[in-house]
Design a protein around this nucleic acid. Structure first.
Ligand SMILES: [Mn+2]
Ligand SMILES: [Mn+2]
Ligand SMILES: [Mn+2]
Ligand SMILES: [Mn+2]
Lengths: 220, 220
DNA sequence: GTTTATTTTTAGGTAAATCTAAAAATTATT
DNA sequence: AATAATTTTTAGATTTACCTAAAAATAAAC
């Protein structure tokens, strides 16, 4: 059984592992909003518990056991986010902090029943996939909106940025999950993208386009 | 903002306050499953924070501020218990430990929305009243089943014992909240009580009868 | 009203998770 | 390859919530 803090470390290491195999001390410290010295201490503890493989100065990788623990927390986090949005009418930009606490409630029964209550959702309010109780993810095929060509279209199925500011901005633009979009034009000057959504033409910055994930219908 | 531990202390002091005005160190230690020395440490901290009034060797009483904090936790605990039973199909004997964790989630928004989602329940699965967001309890008029006379009847509206063993036993006897009962006889020999419930005569021990709360219809 | 028992507090210490400041290892730059 | 910059680790403290053992205060019994 892990402490809250250990669980938070495991989850962060898990997410950082998607970018680089060996996760660095400083990267963890930044995410945990703590100091590198503290991270080194915790890494040693996690290594002792067999949750990470650790070679001094070389960063860490999750062991199978550590990965399972991490995925379990991700599962809980995302299921709670679904609960907050679909049952308690939270907005998608309001759920993260609360889920950050709820994910640590320890009861296998609770999370299985919650999963059932929610109808076994496959993704959370930000489009992120929810692993099943065995830790398996449904395969997802996303492409960044920025990578689409003029004439390409698809459905908004996720975001790769979870800040409240970004999510509120998308909402104002009408760019929420499930919306159909099509690329009308790409501006040479600033890389901004002209898209057709709900029969309206809107312009979004390159920065915004980078963080919208599309399940593509291919060319049109 | 209080820590989990501080919150647990406040809640326990609150419950013990219902029996005696000045709550003793040893009583707190027993409930917290810790040692009296640890309790003294924590009491000092709570006194420093203005949550309890403390006179050495004389026990503690909650200040207005401490009482509010305690009632707030009781509110969360009971609302979560309702959620677990009414939405996730937990049994009334399975909810306590999980609610013990959930009650510490810090989000005013969350608990107000949960309250609304549950339809502003007035009592929890054990019949205990749920304070509103201002900390006010609806008045309740309970009488212990053991105190009823032959011929008296009423509705089961609460229990004063929350152990899983007791609750499972009640369930097996068909003595759940809302059931109508009437006293048929009281045995001189062992003080056990003969009652009529759902058209059946059953016998319950004095010990069981002590912990069932009835809203009485008076004599019959 | 002493003596005894109980309750409560103090003294001193441990473990978890953090910190700052300084040392060591690794990586990048000339 | 030597020097500089960056990253990471150690050393030594701090805070929170505990503990045990011993001392002090209060309550109960004789
Ligand atoms: Mn968390
Ligand atoms: Mn999410
Ligand atoms: Mn609790
Ligand atoms: Mn209850």
């Amino acid at each position: 059984m892990q402490s809250f803090t250990e669980e938070n470390y495991l989850k962060i290491i898990y997410h950082l592992s998607e970018k680089t195999a060996n996760v660095q001390t400083n990267a963890i410290a930044e995410q945990m909003q703590t100091k590198p010295a503290s991270v080194t201490d915790m890494i040693k503890k996690l290594a002792d518990k067999g949750l990470v493989d650790y070679v001094k100065y070389q960063g860490v990788t999750l062991t199978e056991k550590g990965k399972q623990a991490a995925v379990d927390i991700v599962r809980k986090h995302r299921l709670w986010e679904v609960f907050l949005v679909s049952k308690l009418n939270f907005k998608w930009d309001e759920v993260h902090d609360v889920a950050e606490e709820l994910e640590h409630i320890k009861s296998v029964d609770l999370i299985e029943r919650l999963d059932e209550f929610l109808g076994f959702p496959k993704s959370d309010p930000h489009g992120d996939p929810i692993p099943d109780k065995n830790g398996r993810f449904a395969k997802t095929q996303f492409i960044k909106l920025i990578e689409l060509k003029i004439g390409d279209g698809g459905t908004i199925t996720g975001v790769s940025q979870h800040s409240s500011a970004f999510l509120k901005h998308l909402e104002k633009l009408g760019l929420t999950l499930g919306k159909q979009i099509q690329i009308s034009d790409v501006t040479d000057f600033d890389g901004s993208v002209e898209i057709l959504v709900a029969n309206k033409q809107i312009n979004i910055s390159r920065e915004v386009a980078k963080h919208i994930l599309i399940s593509s219908n291919g060319k049109n």
